[in-house]
Design a protein around this nucleic acid. Structure first.
Lengths: 155, 155
DNA sequence: GGTGACTTACTCGGATACGGCGTGTCCGAGTACTGCAGG
DNA sequence: CCTGCAGTACTCGGACACGCCGTATCCGAGTAAGTCACC
């Protein structure tokens, strides 16, 4: 199990936007330049964030990306799921019903114990991410860095 | 992020072995037949479990796999990490130190806030799996199924 | 009948191909600014 | 000077290749049981 590279980029970009004044807009060129990322590829992930409703995109000059909602209302989980998808990392294929075992349906009314455990673990993971809004991530950065970020966003 | 198929197979196989008497041995043929899994491919994952010290393998007739320790001492986390690897799903590439940002090292003495969050989430996930020994998974199965499993293992 | 070695069949282990998804990139559609000509 | 328009440059969005890891499989090395000949 490995999270996509894009998850890290997305979290950083959203955190950066959360440091600016409300409504701050940054183009993908600006965002990529700040972190030294390949602009074309970063665009792909930003697109996903737009589709998921985390960011709002505007075209033309003065266009770019801005947070779709106040940073206090955007959770880290939303950002992660925008890139990685909302489905659980574990998918039970019900192998207990196959092969020589062939557990009959009446023994399978309750979900597989292994599936239950894995879903609980997945829920714990997501819950931790849900508890943290991006505003908190932004607040956790060093003060001088925040100042430079705001300056950069203002161009 | 998606867990390997082998994780599910490994958990089921270890759980099955945990239902037998202590020291119960089952060949990969037996295990694959029980769940209707491709024997050759399952073997690859069982091998990983041996390398990780979860299972013990014996060669020749009457050979096969058995639990390396009592099922109460084997956690679900161990099984998962045997297949999936022990490293966290999130790896921080320190992009904050790249690009126009170029946060100087003195601002990076503390770990990246995003990395901290992701590692905490990962720890929560692993902790949930660590809390459950495979004996508990075995105990959670329906009684008739457990009986048939023991019968199957005894051949 | 007991014992020894041999045969045999069964087991695991490493090395080897294939395919799907993440990675990486490009060009086209749309928009707001800017400059200019006309009134 | 004000107004309208056309040009332009900048933005995002979707469609298109490449590479790596999970998927899937095979054959060879090793071992213990079973068998048979011999004592």
């Amino acid at each position: 199990m490995k999270l996509s590279q894009g998850v890290e980029w997305a979290l950083h970009c959203v955190t950066l936007l959360a440091q600016g004044d409300p409504g701050t807009v940054a183009s993908r060129h600006t965002l990529a330049g700040w972190y030294g990322l390949p602009e074309a590829y970063l665009a792909k992930h930003l697109k996903s964030l737009v589709r998921a409703g985390v960011l709002h995109a505007g075209s033309g000059p003065r266009g770019g990306f801005r947070l779709a909602r106040p940073p206090e209302e955007i959770t880290a989980l939303e950002v992660v799921e925008s890139i990685d998808g909302p489905s659980s990392a574990f998918v039970c294929t019900e192998i207990r019903q196959n092969g020589a075992c062939a557990a009959p349906p009446e023994e399978c009314v309750r979900r597989c114990a292994i599936d239950r455990l894995m879903q609980e673990a997945d829920a714990a993971w997501r819950e931790r991410l849900r508890r943290t809004p991006v505003s908190e991530l932004a607040a956790g950065l060093p003060a001088p860095l925040r100042g430079r970020a705001r300056e950069w966003l203002a161009r």
